[in-house]
């Protein structure tokens, strides 16, 4: 239907087709097309109505799609949100190293294997994390944790925590420590594949994808991660020995690459080390994490728990990251 319009100068141009109105609303037209459409709109009431309709449709479609969006990436609570990559990243020393790696042909550099000690007879050295709190001795901070739980009105957890405290003090008097079996690895020369070990872990193996808040509860507030980086996903696996679950936390560097923080009973970490090794992913030196106290009051057992940071990065960078940012709480 062509309505008579006194303003149309060159008479024959029909009304604007719908796709052109959408293209106009989407700023997707060439400058010439755009000028033409604008000129027609200026003179034509019908097409201005058409444009309004296209714009409304466009807005509604976008609003509907917005309803079907995933929840925002979870950021550890103590992290300042301004540090998230979207808001403008702060490139620390470590990120600078990461950029350097990208710029120089990442994968040859990344082949630095975990635990190359030269003599493979020696097990990798255990370092005590600089950040590992005085919790090994289990006194003041443990109590602080307890009162925090009480403030949360979480009685069951408070009781468990007090029990932990009791067991910890007894274990300090009569140490009966489970000796960890630590892996001796040498992965140099292996072909590397870019895989995400988190997607590779078999759910049938007991790994459960867990939201951050829930993971904190399941680990009694002690989930190892690097402060200041968004957490992409968390997988937990129940420990065969009891105690806190083994945790794998995937976080993101400002440049979008992932790293993984794994924490758990030493022997479970060993299995994970093999998984990472098979993927050609390097790992930081294993650090001690907060132990679990199991067993009975008469025969308390202190388990050794280890933590490590893994990624497609040189071991030095991983160690630096761990030293700088590792949080065990």
């Amino acid at each position: 239907m062509t309505a008579w319009n006194p303003f149309v100068r060159s008479s024959v141009r029909p009304h604007l087709p719908e796709e052109e109105l959408h293209g106009f609303a989407d700023s997707a037209l060439s400058p010439a097309q755009r000028a033409e459409v604008a000129e027609h709109l200026l003179a034509c009431l019908i097409c201005r109505a058409g444009l309004a309709e296209a714009e409304a449709l466009r807005a509604r479609a976008s609003a509907l799609l917005e309803l079907a969006a995933p929840p925002r990436a979870i950021v550890p609570p103590q992290v300042n949100r301004r540090q998230r990559p979207r808001g403008g990243p702060r490139l620390g020393r470590m990120a600078a190293a990461a950029v350097l790696v990208v710029g120089t042909g990442a994968f040859t550099l990344l082949q630095v294997p975990f635990g190359t000690t030269g003599s493979s007879a020696l097990p990798p050295r255990l370092a005590t994390a600089s950040v590992a709190p005085a919790l090994l001795a289990g006194s003041t901070q443990e109590i602080a944790v307890t009162s925090e739980f009480l403030a949360d009105q979480d009685l069951a957890r408070a009781l468990r925590s007090t029990r932990t405290l009791t067991l910890a003090s007894r274990a300090a008097m009569t140490p009966r420590v489970v000796t960890p079996m630590l892996p001796v690895t040498n992965v140099s020369g292996r072909p590397l594949r870019a895989v995400d070990p988190m997607t590779a872990v078999d759910p049938a193996d007991g790994w459960v994808s867990t939201p951050w808040a829930e993971a904190r509860r399941a680990t009694r507030g002690a989930i190892a991660h690097l402060a200041g980086y968004p957490v992409g996903a968390v997988r937990l696996r129940e420990s065969s020995r009891g105690g806190r679950p083994t945790a794998m936390v995937r976080q993101l560097l400002p440049d979008g690459r992932a790293f993984w923080v794994i924490e758990g009973a030493a022997e479970e970490i060993q299995g994970l080390t093999q998984l990472f090794e098979a993927s050609g992913i390097s790992m930081s030196t294993l650090l001690r994490a907060r132990p679990d106290y199991l067993g009975t009051d008469e025969a308390p057992i202190r388990t050794i728990r280890m933590v490590a940071v893994a990624s497609y990065l040189p071991v030095d960078s991983l160690n630096a990251m761990a030293a700088d940012r590792l949080r065990l709480e």
Binding site: P71, V195, A233, R257
Partner: peptide
């Protein structure tokens, strides 16, 4: 909007950026 699972979507996005690298 293709897999309708937030974790899975993040996992797959991770894979995408790894391949991009």
């Amino acid at each position: 909007r293709k897999v309708w699972d937030a974790d899975r979507a993040e996992d797959l996005a991770q894979e995408v950026f790894m391949r991009a690298m």
